[in-house]
């Protein structure tokens, strides 16, 4: 199997591609998570105009393909005088896009929350910020665990789009190897396997966390 030997010789490219994908995914998901929580806070406590504009942005993002946003940041913005490299543009678009999706998930869960706890917190003299951090956030996060895992897998898959704007991640690594050695089958099998492994890992982690949460009785918090 000389083809597999070539793949093994070129493992450096795959390892750096995997590193890039993982860095994008990890940094992007953390940034978008924070953005999602922040947006939820503004939806909770912001003025009417702010709320309206946040909802408008969320609805716009929901109808936009991820690649168009990445194109806009990488190809479109230089025309307006803002230039960044592919990795930064990819990371920013990933965070913005998935941040709004996270907020949409949290908003859906927040709507279903019982208002009793919030009223109790208010009666106990909690400030709005304290109510948010101590009551709303734990409730919302623990309930949305399966949806968060799902969104993380979508986020991982979206990093593959960034090879189109020349970020050197797994798909780009596979593509460069196949174009040099003409072994598309092996190169892409490796790439797909890598993606599969990451997403199975995400699923397992979310399953374990969900079990832990249910064991400790936090899911009905």
């Amino acid at each position: 199997m000389t083809e597999w030997e070539i793949i093994w010789q070129q493992r450096e490219i795959f390892i750096s591609g995997f590193g890039n994908t993982f860095a994008l995914f990890f940094a992007g998901s953390i940034a978008s998570f924070i953005l999602g929580v922040t947006l939820l806070y503004t939806l909770e406590n912001g003025s009417k105009g702010v709320k309206g504009s946040v909802i408008l942005v969320i609805n716009m993002m929901r109808t936009l393909p991820f690649l168009i946003l990445a194109y806009l940041l990488y190809y479109g913005l230089p025309q307006a005088g803002i230039r960044m490299d592919a990795f930064t543009a990819g990371l920013i678009s990933l965070s913005l896009y998935h941040g709004t999706y996270f907020c949409e998930i949290f908003r859906g869960i927040r709507k279903g929350l019982d208002s009793g706890q919030m009223e109790a917190a208010q009666a106990c003299g909690f400030s709005r910020f304290k109510t948010f951090t101590r009551i709303i956030i734990p409730n919302v996060l623990l309930r949305s665990l399966p949806l968060i895992a799902n969104q993380l897998i979508i986020c991982l898959k979206d990093t593959a789009f960034l090879c189109i704007i020349t970020v050197g991640e797994i798909t780009a690594a596979a593509n460069s190897i196949q174009s040099t050695y003409f072994i598309p089958l092996n190169a892409f099998i490796v790439a797909i396997a890598l993606y599969w492994i990451i997403s199975i890992a995400i699923e397992q982690v979310s399953k374990i966390t969900l079990n832990k949460v249910q064991d400790r009785g936090l899911s009905h918090a």
């Binding site: 898959k157 593959a160 189109i164 797994i170 798909t171 596979a174 892409f188 797909i192 993606y195 990451i198």
Partner: peptide
């Protein structure tokens, strides 16, 4: 498999 594979990778493959 299909749920874990990104569309870009699948299309190239």
């Amino acid at each position: 498999w299909a749920r874990a594979t990104p569309l870009v990778t699948l299309a190239l493959f």
